[in-house]
């Protein structure tokens, strides 16, 4: 504190604010909108709308490969995307082939199947409308192998049934048998590997969903190699909004991404507020330093 100039002391205090105060503000910015159920309406941006339109344009019975390439840490961000995409695929009567390049993806497939397909679309039959192929080690090597021969790697499904005994696997030869590949995650291995080792060599459309931090890294592949991308909670919320717009019956279903946009918006307002305050104090501090230097120069 500067006793001669209390105003400057205040700005100094603000400039050196304890980070726990910022944590507290962010905490409230998240908790209060959750308690008040504050949410925002979303409009699908072109990069998200492209994924929606692609699924919408697929004829009934088209084969969609969904790769669960994420772990528990990113579940809050990626799971809403998966839920919305599964709902959309079920509604369009597409055949869903679920697999994982990440070890933890296997468990997440089981959860998604239980929470979305089995609960909301009980008429869908395992092995006819959807299948869990589980996790296989090998990262991009696995993609390379299944590009030419799917059954070389997948001799059984995740439940242990012979792969040829699963009706929807009978006419699958390799990755080229699929109409669309959806990679959900954004880490390694993930969307990039699907584009480089699957989509491009096999000329198969690839789309996906990624966490907000990894989405900008994937923009160079859009729109030629990656036809669309759901980036973070916002991308998921945009997809949920597009789905509700196209199929109003989903309004009554859970839409976690739209719900999460409220806290995320308020938290961003708080961050923006702090950045503005930080810059104001920075400029005032710099001006004062310059003044002090000038005064020092005069004394000399």
């Amino acid at each position: 504190m500067n006793p001669d100039n209390p105003k400057m002391g205040f700005f100094e205090t603000i400039a050196n604010i304890d980070r726990r105060v910022i944590f507290l503000f962010i905490g409230f910015a998240v908790i209060i909108p959750v308690l008040l159920s504050f949410s925002c309406t979303e409009e699908a941006t072109p990069i998200v709308q492209a994924v929606y339109d692609e699924i919408e344009s697929l004829p009934e019975g088209s084969k969609v490969l969904i790769s669960f390439d994420y772990g528990p840490s990113t579940v809050p961000e990626v799971q809403p995307m998966i839920d919305a995409l599964l709902r959309h695929s079920c509604e369009k009567n597409l055949k869903m082939y679920m697999m994982a390049l990440w070890g933890t993806g296997h468990n997440l497939i089981s959860e998604s199947m239980q929470d979305i397909i089995e609960k909301e679309f009980p008429h869908k039959i395992y092995g006819v409308d959807y299948v869990n192929l589980g996790y296989k080690a090998g990262n991009q090597g696995l993609i390379n192998v299944i590009l030419t021969d799917m059954k070389k790697m997948y001799t059984t499904d995740a439940r242990g049934s012979e792969i040829d005994a699963v009706p929807m696997m009978v006419d699958i030869r390799n990755l080229k048998s699929f109409d669309l590949i959806l990679s959900m995650g954004g880490g390694f291995p993930g969307i990039k590997e699907w584009v480089l080792f699957g989509g491009d060599p096999g000329n198969i459309p690839v789309a996906g969903g990624a966490t907000a931090v990894s989405a900008p890294l994937l923009y160079p592949y859009y729109p030629r190699q990656l036809l669309g991308l759901l980036g973070g909670i916002k991308g998921a919320a945009e997809y949920e909004s597009a789905l509700i717009k196209g199929y109003p019956k989903f309004k009554t279903h859970s839409h976690p991404a739209i719900d999460m946009m409220g806290p995320q918006t308020v938290a961003h307002i708080v961050i923006v507020f702090f950045i503005v305050i930080g810059n104001i104090t920075f400029f005032i501090g710099r001006k004062r330093e310059e003044g002090e230097k000038r005064e020092g120069g005069v004394i000399k």
Partner: peptide
């Protein structure tokens, strides 16, 4: 929380 603090 850390991003908010770092951004500030």
């Amino acid at each position: 929380f850390y991003i908010a603090s770092a951004a500030y």
